[in-house]
């Protein structure tokens, strides 16, 4: 699998990463190499195999519906880049934009 510079830019945008033009070339080549490498997986016939998502063959444990957390806003926001009136500030969010 060889990626194009366009693919790399698209991936970078999905992952919200900025790549310089030089980096695009480098990542295009490196990611293509890695993808070629991982395609060794195709040597194995896995048609009848179930995916193995977690080593623990258990069900999800449940916690009781109890409030255990206290307000720690001051501690949490002490390390926040920008806050005002208890809110985290970010550049204007346009309504409905996603």
């Amino acid at each position: 699998m060889s990626l194009t510079a366009g693919d790399v830019k698209k991936i970078a945008h999905l992952a919200r990463l900025n790549l310089l033009e030089n980096d695009v070339t480098l990542y295009t080549q490196q990611l293509s190499t890695i993808l070629n490498f991982v395609e060794q997986m195709n040597q194995a016939d896995t048609a009848e195999i179930e995916p193995f998502f977690n080593p623990l063959d258990l069900g999800q444990r449940l916690r009781p519906d109890v409030v255990t957390e206290q307000n720690q806003r001051d501690a949490f926001q002490a390390i926040a880049p920008q806050v005002e009136a208890g809110l985290y500030l970010v550049p204007q969010v346009i309504e409905g934009e996603e």
Binding site: I11, A15, L17, Y27, Q30, L31
Partner: peptide, 19 residues
């Protein structure tokens, strides 16, 4: 923020994983 904060290997792996 992300590009400045993450180094090359981390960036590489995020890209591979996103793909």
């Amino acid at each position: 923020s992300r590009s400045e904060g993450f180094g090359k290997e981390v960036t590489r792996r995020i890209m591979i994983g996103t793909y």
